[in-house]
Amino acid sequence: MHRPGDGQPPTTPAGRRTGLLLFWLYVALYGGFMALVLVRPDLLSKRPFGGVNLAIAYGMGLIAAAFLLAVVYMVLRSDRSGG
């Protein structure tokens, strides 16, 4: 078992790849939102979701996406490590 402070992170290469893949996926979602706010803020006033505008829908979506990706990561890592 890995001991704290021995200088070597214990994450397996596969685990690290999974984490980084999900990280970059979220960066793309977050970056897309920031690009809309900075470059095309007019689009955020559109109301495609039951009268709720895109600014709120995308913001809520980012919060939900963070949770979903976190759960996916936990499940994938549990499968690989056997718990």
């Binding site: 704290p4 402070g5 977050y30 990561y73």
Partner: peptide, 14 residues
């Protein structure tokens, strides 16, 4: 997201 996917486990280990 940064904390979970990049930092959490290494910080615990190191």
């Amino acid at each position: 997201i940064v904390a979970l996917f990049v930092i959490a486990e290494p910080i615990k280990a190191l």
